[in-house]
Design a protein around this nucleic acid. Structure first.
Length: 469
RNA sequence: GCCCCCAUCGUCUAGUGGCCUAGGACACCACCCUUUCAAGGUGGCGGCACGGGUUCGAAUCCCGUUGGGGGUGCCA
């Protein structure tokens, strides 16, 4: 009679949604799907001054973006830890009543002083047998028993902690409020959690929490502590130092599929030689026991590569739709009336293979949606440096006045001028490109010129030529 | 300091005693293709931290060293 596995993800709403959190959420979600179990979302909003309700919505939005949908039948929540405060205190009182916890009136300063005098670190169990009752300013501490605590971990195997190395930790603060260690366990117990899959930084908490589970009369859950994500300095990714906000990646135009796929290749790999695989394959193959034991570097360059790959794989019309937020509205670099969706649709296939992020798209096509392009000075200087630059551009302009205005015809014109001067097309087009687009690189030239039309093109060439003198 | 975890190319990984003169991906380099830039193709560079065992045989098992990381809060 196997019970339904219940996984949980328990973020605290203290800021933008962390990519490390996203990975942990994904792990729990996949595991819940695999086992036809439940993914419980619990917002750990216990009275920390850093908490802010706005972040809760951010968590929900980010999870939804990742496909962890709160309307899915496997999803339960969100529950709020703050709503369970009474339960936490009740559990603490139970622990006190049965002698598993005791009150202590020492302040942090007192403890530090005693530690200094004894030469040993941490709290020394001073109040263990003083028989103190509850009272203002008194904390409730867990009475850590003798012996050892063995944590069975799905990623790491069994990890043994000598209880003598674990001090009597605080359960209730001096003001009576529960701390994370307690609240987290009580919520897991009351929510029937069977599997705790979280980041490795919590591994030292596991023996303590396991003791609380047992003292409360329950069998502890299955633990799994997955390696943390690190930066190039090999330090745990931090909100202060590193770019970790899922929201930010999303705004830059990272695709959710790419983010999910990339995140899942950190510490784990799908079967076979291909890393870019459908989420269904990942869901089918993912296995905690094959998760790596060491920290993984969150490599933005590789994320970008995954993203570019996914962008290229999109059907064109889907790509066009995906670009929309960057083309219309507040993010667009041009006036709304200058933008023409039909023109973009025409050039879209040419930009699709050239972007890594959706936010890169506007700067690649903006010259189509303005009167005159902004000329990049460096590009201009370089393109017009050769002595043949202006002369050939003049010839091209004159030919453009009468030629057929199709990509092929335009190309033929430029090639003809090039032949006359013994110049290759690649070189020849540089001044033309800068004149028309303002830049030295971009999508193939003749298609956009044809789109622009004769008048606009001639005008741009003349402006560039004038700038030269 | 103490406790715990970890160790394959620069990075992410495959590898669970013989299939490994260690495979793939990102990055980098070269060449091909080419309308700039991409994309694509081909090739290249580059790694089992070190030292001892165990074994006919070790990247894989054991021990030690070194190195990294996490924790050590009346944060979560």
């Amino acid at each position: 009679m196997a019970q339904t596995p219940r996984y949980r993800f328990a973020p605290s709403p203290t800021g933008y949604f962390h990519v490390g959190g996203a990975r942990t959420a994904l792990y729990n979600w996949i595991l819940a799907l695999q086992s036809n179990g439940v993914f419980v979302l619990r917002i750990e909003d216990t009275d920390d001054s850093r908490n802010n309700p706005q972040w809760t919505q951010g968590i929900l939005d980010a999870l939804a973006w990742l496909g962890i949908d709160n309307k899915d039948s496997h999803f339960e929540g969100p529950f709020f830890q703050s709503a369970n405060a009474a339960l936490h205190v009740e559990a603490a009182e139970k622990l006190f009543a049965q002698g598993a916890a005791y009150y202590c009136d020492l302040s942090s300063e007192d403890i530090q002083k005693r530690a200094k005098e004894s030469g040993k670190q941490g709290y020394d169990g001073y109040s263990r047998d003083r028989g103190l009752g509850p009272g203002e300013g008194r904390v409730l501490r867990f009475r850590v028993p003798e012996g050892a605590t063995i944590v069975q971990d799905q990623v790491r195997g069994s990890v043994e902690f000598d209880n003598s190395t674990i001090e009597d930790f605080v359960l209730l603060r001096g003001n009576g409020s529960p701390v994370f260690l307690l609240a987290n366990v009580v919520d897991d117990v009351t929510q029937g959690i069977t599997h705790v899959v979280r980041a490795e930084e919590h591994l030292p908490n596991a023996p303590k929490q396991q003791m609380i589970w047992r003292a409360l009369g329950h069998e502890p859950p299955v633990w799994a502590h997955v390696p943390v994500l690190v930066n190039e300095q090999r330090k745990k990714l931090s909100k202060r130092r590193d770019k970790v906000a899922v929201e930010q990646y999303r705004e830059e135009g990272i695709l959710s599929v790419a983010m999910k796929n990339y995140l899942m290749t950190l510490g784990w790999a799908p079967i076979g030689d291909t890393e870019i695989v459908p989420f269904e394959k990942i869901t089918a193959e993912f296995d905690l026991s094959s998760v790596n034991h060491s920290p993984a570097f969150f490599d933005i360059v590789k994320l970008h590569s995954f993203n570019a790959d996914y962008i290229r794989a999109m059907p064109v019309d889907e790509f066009i739709r995906a670009c929309e937020p960057w083309l219309v509205g507040a993010k667009a670099p041009w006036q709304a009336q200058d933008y023409d969706a039909k023109v973009f649709a025409e050039i879209a296939p040419l930009v699709q293979t050239r972007v890594q992020l959706l936010q890169d798209v506007p700067s690649m096509v903006d010259f189509l949606f303005c009167d005159l392009p902004t000329i990049d000075d460096a590009a201009f200087t370089k393109a017009f440096a050769p002595e043949w630059a202006s002369a050939t551009l003049i010839e091209i302009r004159d030919a453009f006045k009468t030629c057929e205005f199709t990509p092929d015809a335009l190309k033929a014109v430029v090639e003809a001028v090039g032949e006359k001067h013994s110049l290759k097309l690649g070189k020849m087009q540089a001044p033309l490109r800068v004149a028309v687009t303002g830049r030295s690189v971009g999508p193939p030239l003749f298609e956009p010129i044809a789109m622009l039309g004769r008048d606009a093109t001639l005008k741009r060439i003349d402006v560039a030529l004038a700038k030269k003198v």
